[in-house]
């Protein structure tokens, strides 16, 4: 039994479905990426998993228990933590207050501080005054303080320098390995994603077009790149620049 099992998911805004018949899974301790071009339906899929977008058909189970009937807040309490694309932080709160809200204790648990030592240094700073990387760190820390069984992260690297992005992936790996947490990310940088994750689902045209381990997918990288840059955009053997 997978940690997260999504079957036949059809969801969208109003009556028009944006994603159709999506099937994907995440195991405990596994890091999975959802890849695909803009408009392929990746973000909508994540929103449907956390409950912010209504389901028109399909089933979502966490640890074998269906969560489809739960409100977003209840899904969060059941163990799904979603870091959305806009991060949805609380700009007028301080870092400490954000952590306190998430943990019910004044300090973050030791293992979270271990992952993000910078949290202590930033304690009294207002969230609005943080840099992009610091905000993304806080968004992840806030979610991890709830000790989720599934962590969902949308466009983690949006607007961040490659150096910063490269610092976050080891953290996600450790979360998966040490906490047994399943991690599902949407990542626009295919190469970066393939370097760090265990498995990928590739979305195109509102549904999952291909799934497989990194080893299985690496030879098909042209296909993946094509989803972003259009056919033959990526330099291949016969198409030297």
């Amino acid at each position: 039994m997978s940690l997260l099992d999504v079957r036949g998911l059809t969801a969208g805004y109003g009556a028009v479905p944006v994603v159709r018949d999506v099937g994907l899974s995440v195991e405990r301790g596994e890091l999975v990426a959802l890849l695909g071009a803009n408009g392929a339906g990746k973000t909508t899929t994540l929103l449907a998993i956390s409950g912010l977008v209504g389901l028109q058909a399909g089933e979502i189970t966490l640890d074998g228990r269906p969560v489809t009937a739960l409100t977003p807040a209840r899904r969060a309490r059941a163990g799904i933590q979603h870091v959305p694309e806009d991060r949805s932080l609380f700009p007028s709160l301080t870092v400490d207050e954000t952590i306190r809200l998430a943990c019910r204790t004044r300090r973050a648990p030791g293992w979270v501080l271990d992952l993000f030592p910078a949290l202590e240094r930033l304690g009294g700073r207002r969230v609005a005054a943080l840099s992009g990387g610091e905000q993304q760190m806080l968004a992840l820390a806030r979610a991890l303080c709830r000790d989720p069984s599934l962590l969902v992260v949308d466009e983690m690297s949006l607007g961040l320098a490659p150096l910063v992005v490269n610092a976050f992936f080891p953290v996600l790996r450790r979360v998966a390995a040490e906490r047994g947490c399943g991690v599902l990310i949407v990542e626009q940088h295919v190469h970066v994603a393939l370097r760090w994750v265990d498995r990928v689902h590739v979305m195109a045209g509102g549904t999952v077009a291909a799934s497989g381990t990194v080893e299985e997918m690496r030879p098909r990288i042209d296909e993946l790149a094509g989803a972003y840059l259009g056919p033959s955009a990526y330099p291949t053997e016969g198409d030297k620049p």
């Binding site: 956390s50 977003p72 209840r74 969060a76 933590q81 007028s92 709160l93």
Partner: peptide, 13 residues
């Protein structure tokens, strides 16, 4: 927090 971002609050549970 909810006044800042209701979505953030809901996602936090």
């Amino acid at each position: 927090a909810t006044a800042d971002s209701a979505k953030g609050s809901v996602l936090l549970g």
